[in-house]
Write a protein that binds this DNA or RNA. Structure first.
Lengths: 183, 183
DNA sequence: TAATTTTAGTTAGATAATCTAATTATATAA
DNA sequence: TTATATAATTAGATTATCTAACTAAAATTA
């Protein structure tokens, strides 16, 4: 009784409608020339994207990181010893303002995961580098990150995999073109 | 000359590496038992998810809405006249705290898109409803939302579509199970 | 070469979306 | 009737963004 009664008072949970009511609403409210089937897929992609990001965030949390800080550390790691990385180039790549990068770098620098060095060639520029401590953090987080990535797709079987990879690659380039971004 | 020169000064753009350097890094840093192929797909899904969200945000911006406010309005629309919607049930469904819902409802109420009514049956509860003005906003935004959803998938061809739908539905339910959420 | 313009980075101040902890009112249970 | 639980809010914080203004340095131009 106690358990059951309790539940009854916990009340008012919104029932999970599933996707059908969304599709019904779409039928009534989309423009004539909107492809319903594609919009259905797009809606799924949007939802999955949210879930994928939540999964990754959950795993990065262990390291005191968020997705955007992680992106910065990953960029610094991948470009290390290749090119000079400035706050401007990070802002450009991340699609955010320089002021936002400044804030993020302040946060990372306070934790000794990155350092800023004034450029000797051009006094306006700052050279951003990952520190040894930062490298160690990344080294600890990477295995978890990859395993989180793979867990997102754990249900996929071999036959589907190849095809899905092809489709996702195609979507990646078409979306990047549309948004004018890229990695 | 002028244009070219200018470009040369625009300097220090980080080159777009593409996915290969990520895969190389994965090879070196993933755990032995991490399925590389699946992690590759997961990484793509993560990136696509970001892009899909950006696309939707860009379109909702026109209406002064963000994805989370839109989610609330959509929930109110779909559940209208079906069940009593309370701040608690919204928090539960959205996976956020009641305090966060309070803030969002304040914002929406200030714009006259929702109203709050005290429940007569249980004085602790608030009944949240979409207003006529809110309904009109949603009616204007919905066609744009669906067309944005379909634009995400515009490259998909009919043969791929069926299979992709099946895969995405499967991923949706597996991820929702893992995260303990659902729509 | 001196004056002007552009670029890089930061600072200041704002908003949005979240959180936790504390508070208030009401309802339920012991 | 008293104690406990629930619903919502408030207060105060953090993170991630933004724009506008500012400083310093470099590049352009007159």
């Amino acid at each position: 009784m106690s358990r059951k009664n309790k539940r009854e008072h916990t009340s008012d949970q919104l029932p999970k409608l599933g996707i059908q009511p969304y599709l019904d609403l779409m039928e009534r409210t989309a423009l004539q020339n909107t492809d319903r089937k594609l919009a259905h897929l797009g809606l799924l992609m949007l939802w999955l994207g949210d879930n994928a990001i939540d999964t990754i965030d959950l795993n990065l949390e262990t390291f005191g990181l968020t997705e955007s800080k992680w992106d910065v550390l990953l960029l610094l790691t991948l470009h290390e010893d290749r090119e000079l990385i400035t706050p401007s180039s990070l802002a450009d790549r991340l699609g955010i303002r320089r002021a936002s990068v400044t804030a993020m770098l302040d946060w990372l620098e306070k934790r000794h995961w990155i350092i800023r060095e004034q450029s000797t060639l051009d006094g306006r520029k700052i050279h951003v580098k990952i520190t040894q401590e930062g490298r160690e953090l990344v080294a600890r987080a990477l295995p978890v990150f990859w395993s989180a990535c793979s867990s997102i797709m754990s249900e996929i079987e071999e036959e589907e995999r190849m095809l899905l990879e092809k489709i996702l690659m195609k979507l990646k380039s078409s979306m990047e073109k549309k948004l004018g971004v890229g990695r």
